[in-house]
Amino acid sequence: MNRTVLDLWVGFFVALGIAALLFLALKVGNLSSAHMSETYVLQAKFDNIGGLKVRGPVKSAGVVVGRIAEIKFDPVSYEAVVTLNVDGRYQFPKDTFASIYTAGLLGEQYVGLDVGGDEKMLKAGDTIAKTQSAVVLEKMISQFLFSKAADGQDKK
């Protein structure tokens, strides 16, 4: 069996294809940055999750520290149970506050972890006790309107 010119072309073709795949993976996708080797699971219960989506980011101080793994509805307490996959490199205190924020005015919603001062850390499988629900725009507007109306009546 001898090497032929054809082999060279096929080799060139395969190399080019793999280069294109690598380009897509490293330069276009975020294989390099989204590498979370070990994660642990935390849970948080919310009264209202708004438009939170599975695979959405979990951020602390604006840095992505995990992803939302699952969103369920608890039929007993009528709350939303959000399961978070948190990067194993980061530990959070027991009294961490989980809130649902919106990135920008029309952006996606994410879970923000506001760190408390407790000495003890949350372990895998723990539930975050303190949570704040998503801001529902309609509720906010109606509150604003009602308070305005109340102001108006006070002045009379």
Binding site: F13, G17, I18, A20, L21, F23, L24, V28
Partner: peptide
């Protein structure tokens, strides 16, 4: 074999 490689090149070229 050829098809996925060609599609990857197409996408990369498009980007």
């Amino acid at each position: 074999v050829a098809m996925p490689l060609l599609a990857a090149m197409f996408s990369a070229m498009g980007v």
